[in-house]
């Protein structure tokens, strides 16, 4: 039993009544605790779909997906919400920060839904922003931040409830190599210093370089798995 297991997982999308898009065509993926896994592959190969299933916001059409040995299908909506809130942190491809909230409030958001008290929440948000080097941007709105800064806020938000698993979709996709480097450094530390499991969807060879393992997808199938030294 691994932390995350997919067995022969498929994902079909129905377009209209007749057309079926097969995004995943039978995947076996096992992810251990503490790993840094890079998921690579051409556009449309199913990387985001896979990540959504691993992050428990989506379910496979067929096959099995489980977290710590528990079938995701068997979880109630309540348990799923709790899982998303506490165990899993998402960093989205397009940041997805709330435009109406400041950096600090964005980081507080996941804690709000866990019912954490204002004072504790604010302190923790500031700590996280400090960790990603943005303590002086706490009161800025996303549109007052650079792309790299937004991505760091998104990482701080993903860490808000101290999740075991961090999922990042193209965290360096929109960044130059220098700010991309900072982000990758940060993600790596999450694994090495805090023992978190980090899953990175990426096209970026630099990102793949920090991974302990690379899974390569093509057309909804795993075509290569490389364990890095």
């Amino acid at each position: 039993m691994s932390l995350l297991d997919l067995k022969d997982a498929t994902k079909d999308y129905k377009l209209g009544k007749t057309v079926i898009v097969r995004a995943l065509r039978g995947l076996d993926v096992h992810i251990e605790k503490g790993e840094i896994v890079a998921i690579m592959g051409p556009s449309g190969s199913g990387k985001s779909t896979l990540m959504h299933i691993l992050g428990c916001v989506d379910t496979p059409t067929a096959g099995e997906a489980s977290i710590e040995g528990t079938q995701i299908k068997s979880l109630s909506e309540r348990q799923l919400v709790a899982l998303r809130g506490r165990k899993i942190g998402f960093v989205f491809q397009t940041f997805n920060l709330m435009q109406t909230l400041s950096a600090q409030q964005n980081v507080e958001l996941p804690m709000i839904f866990q019912g954490i008290k204002k004072k504790e929440r604010a302190q923790r948000a500031l700590d996280l922003l400090t960790k990603v080097g943005l303590e002086r941007r706490a009161h800025h709105r996303p549109n007052e931040l650079s792309g790299g800064e937004r991505q760091r806020v998104a990482i701080a938000r993903a860490l808000a409830n101290d999740p075991d698993i961090l999922l990042a979709d193209e965290p360096t996709g929109n960044l130059d190599s220098e700010s991309g480097g900072t982000i990758l450094e940060l993600l790596k530390r999450m694994s090495t210093e805090y023992g978190k499991t980090v899953i990175i969807v990426t096209h970026d060879p630099d990102a793949a370089a920090i991974a302990t393992r690379t899974i390569r997808l093509h057309d909804g199938r795993v075509v290569e798995e490389v364990r890095n030294a």
């Binding site: 992050g55 916001v57 909506e77 309540r78 919400v81 709790a82 998303r84 809130g85 506490r86 998402f90 989205f92 997805n96 709330m98 958001l109 996941p110 839904f113 866990q114 938000r157 808000a160 409830n161």
Partner: peptide
């Protein structure tokens, strides 16, 4: 999209 994000970071439907 914001709703999706809020749910992905742990918001319940009732929230």
């Amino acid at each position: 999209k914001e709703i999706g994000v809020m749910k992905a970071v742990g918001a319940k439907n009732s929230h």
